[in-house]
Simulated assay, not measured.
Amino acid sequence: MKSYYVIQASLRYYGRLPAATEVIGGHVFGTLGHEKANATRWKEPPHERLANLPTYDTRGAQLVRTTKPAVSGLGESKAIEAFVRRHGILFGRVNETGHFYEDAVRFANAQELLRRAWSGDGAAIREIEEQVEDALEAHPSVRAGGIEVATENLWSFICVLFLRDQAARKTKLCQNPDCSNPYFLQQRKGQKYCSHKCAVLMNVRRFRERQANAISIQKGG
């Protein structure tokens, strides 16, 4: 006799969106409104968007804007604000009047963890699994045809989406080393680039390299 059953589940995020925001000292402050986040309005999934938000690499003498894997640093405050306005607060502390504070350092740490996991770091993937365990609510849903898993915690929602896509082997890194949005979800088997644009750019680059090598060989001969 089976001791378990396979049950269909749906995932719902019901976090509230800000009615107003402002950047102070690199952090995002604001007030939550009554409007709930609507995933149908998002052009890209929040985990993909978060991974691709630009950061400033602090390892050198000068700040360099980047989205490269395994680079952590300062979050770009305006990019964080735009993300919060579109998707809701990631970790923000909210008081009883609806005022919130999104800490840029904690935001950047979460982004770094997601990038490491997206790049295949096993320790980062396990950490994401641990962080998501206690923030989900599950209850029966006739509409969902099984179980509806819901959360108002955006980070937990992002973690679940990432783990789902990572298990399906869809989380990939664009093979264009200069890509500004290198984290993407594979749409077809063998897809190496995030977009047709990157694929064309790399094909042109390889063609020019072959031409340059051929000319060099001819001159050497």
Results as ranks from 00 to 15, higher is better:
residue 2 K to F: 11
residue 8 Q to C: 08
residue 9 A to K: 05
residue 11 L to M: 11
residue 13 Y to C: 00
residue 14 Y to P: 00
residue 15 G to I: 00
residue 15 G to L: 00
residue 15 G to P: 06
residue 23 V to R: 03
residue 27 H to W: 04
residue 29 F to V: 02
residue 34 H to W: 04
residue 36 K to M: 03
residue 38 N to M: 03
residue 46 P to E: 05
residue 51 A to Q: 10
residue 55 T to W: 15
residue 55 T to E: 12
residue 56 Y to E: 14
residue 57 D to I: 05
residue 57 D to A: 10
residue 58 T to M: 11
residue 59 R to I: 08
residue 60 G to H: 09
residue 62 Q to E: 15
residue 67 T to Y: 06
residue 68 K to Q: 12
residue 70 A to N: 13
residue 72 S to Y: 15
residue 73 G to P: 13
residue 77 S to F: 03
residue 79 A to D: 15
residue 79 A to G: 12
residue 80 I to K: 03
residue 81 E to W: 02
residue 86 R to G: 02
residue 89 I to M: 03
residue 91 F to K: 05
residue 94 V to D: 07
residue 95 N to K: 10
residue 98 G to A: 01
residue 99 H to C: 09
residue 109 N to M: 15
residue 110 A to V: 08
residue 110 A to L: 11
residue 119 S to L: 14
residue 122 G to A: 14
residue 125 I to D: 02
residue 125 I to T: 09
residue 129 E to K: 09
residue 134 D to Y: 05
residue 136 L to M: 13
residue 137 E to K: 10
residue 138 A to E: 09
residue 140 P to L: 02
residue 151 T to R: 02
residue 154 L to V: 05
residue 160 V to K: 05
residue 163 L to W: 08
residue 163 L to R: 01
residue 164 R to W: 07
residue 168 A to T: 08
residue 174 C to N: 01
residue 178 D to W: 07
residue 179 C to Q: 01
residue 180 S to A: 15
residue 187 Q to N: 11
residue 189 K to W: 03
residue 194 C to N: 08
residue 196 H to I: 03
residue 199 A to P: 02
residue 202 M to K: 01
residue 203 N to P: 00
residue 207 F to P: 00
residue 210 R to N: 07
residue 211 Q to K: 05
residue 212 A to F: 03
